[in-house]
Amino acid sequence: MADEQNNRGAFLIQEHFCTVMGAPITARICAGLAISLDRDTRTGRRVLDWPGEPTTDALPLRLVGGLHALDLAGVAPGLSALFGGRITDPEEVQQVLRDSFITHDAAIYPWLDGPPQTNEAGRSAALMTGLIEVARQHGPRLELLEIGSSAGLNLLIDRFRFDLGGTMVGPADSPVTIRPEWRGAPPPQVPVEIVSVRGVEIQPVDVTDPKAADRLRAYIWADNPERTERLSRAIAMIEARPVDMILGDAADWIEARLAEPQAAGVTRVLMHSVVWQYLGTERQGRIEAAVQAAGTAATAERPLAWVRMEPNRNTAQQQVWVQSWPRFGEAVQLANVQAHGAWVEPLNPPRHGEGNHAKHGGGGGPAA
């Protein structure tokens, strides 16, 4: 039985996350939606009668994405004023939202059909923080396997330039430099040589399709125009040279990839960001079992590592965790990270865990 109050409450939870992440416009819209939603439209009824867990399902972000798409298309002046930050009074916000649902019900409704796929390129700074640690432990040559690749933006990690608190990684002539606010000592300046990058996605986004690219832009919060610019540059990089991403199931793919022969002197790395919560317990268990089995078989000549950026719902932050075999099988948290990679706060010393991924940042929560 759907719980209308719980479904409204999910928008207030998302408001809190947006506020913590410095996104007042999106927070204001989420707060307005919690109050203004009613049963006068198909969209309103579907949201209020949502049968699943609305926060885990990213229900608020589905709806905000649909509204933002109308703003970006220039067909809803009231929404454009709202997303532009020109309307701030709570009652005015609520009225604009009510009017928008009545006028654009048919256009908004389909945005509820699937979760947002932001595939934020800024998150690759968090992943690179983990990869630097892997390179420090096992040597520079890395073979990357990403699950939940979405549009493939983080598969450009070998082509991005990174400035991580003054530690520089990646090609100096890259059209995209990712430079998060670095809140602590920079990572060590060690060589990182990415020999291959492959990914899998169960619902891949083709960013060379203008409609798909516009959909990604709609999921970017209006508070973060720099993310939109970075997305456009990353799309241009994929258009110039596609990434290696296939359609498939994450667990099936990882089981197959970890069973492949591995080159000597190359560390095989499973990596992902803000995807674990969407996999479900069965896939999570299969991936954990495959990694543990491969880790047991890892050698100094053919190491294995697991680098992930996943949310902690209690702090509204992402956490960067690293495990590697054969010598470093214990999970270690390297940093806390803003959900879109705007800042990175390294932990000094790193926090050691129990090696069980599900206990470290896999709990889910709003992040997109």
Rank of each mutant, 00 (worst) to 15 (best):
A2E: 00
E4F: 09
Q5F: 02
Q5I: 06
L12D: 10
L12I: 15
E15D: 13
M21W: 07
A23Q: 02
P24W: 15
T26I: 06
T26Y: 00
R28F: 06
R28K: 14
G32F: 03
L33W: 04
L37E: 12
G44M: 10
R45H: 11
V47H: 01
E53R: 01
P54D: 04
L59F: 01
L61F: 14
L63N: 03
G66M: 09
G66H: 04
H68G: 07
L72Y: 00
L72V: 01
L72R: 00
G74P: 12
V75P: 07
V75W: 08
V75F: 00
L82M: 07
F83G: 00
G85K: 13
G85M: 07
I87N: 12
F101H: 09
Y109N: 14
Y109K: 05
P116V: 10
R123N: 15
R123C: 13
T129M: 08
I132F: 04
E133K: 11
A135W: 05
Q137I: 14
H138V: 14
P140G: 07
R141W: 11
L142T: 07
L142N: 06
E143R: 12
E143I: 03
I147E: 03
A151E: 04
L156G: 00
L164G: 00
M168R: 10
A172Y: 00
A172N: 03
S174M: 01
V176T: 09
E181I: 02
W182I: 11
G184Y: 01
P187D: 13
V192C: 02
I194V: 12
R198I: 07
G199A: 09
I202F: 01
D206V: 09
T208K: 12
D209C: 05
A212L: 01
D214S: 07
D214C: 03
R215F: 01
R217T: 12
A222C: 06
N224P: 03
R230M: 15
R230H: 11
R230Y: 07
A234S: 15
A236N: 04
E239G: 08
A240S: 10
P242N: 09
V243D: 00
M245H: 00
I246D: 01
I246Q: 04
I254W: 01
I254E: 01
E260F: 12
P261H: 15
Q262C: 08
Q262M: 14
V266T: 13
V266N: 07
T267K: 13
L270D: 10
H272W: 05
S273V: 09
Y278R: 02
L279A: 10
L279N: 06
T281V: 11
Q284T: 06
A290G: 11
Q292F: 02
A294T: 15
T299G: 08
A300W: 12
A300V: 08
E301V: 15
L304F: 15
L304R: 11
M309L: 07
R313W: 12
V322H: 06
V332L: 03
V332S: 05
A335C: 14
Q338P: 08
A339T: 15
G341D: 09
W343F: 15
P349F: 12
H352G: 05
H357I: 10
H360E: 13
G362W: 10
G363R: 04
G365M: 10
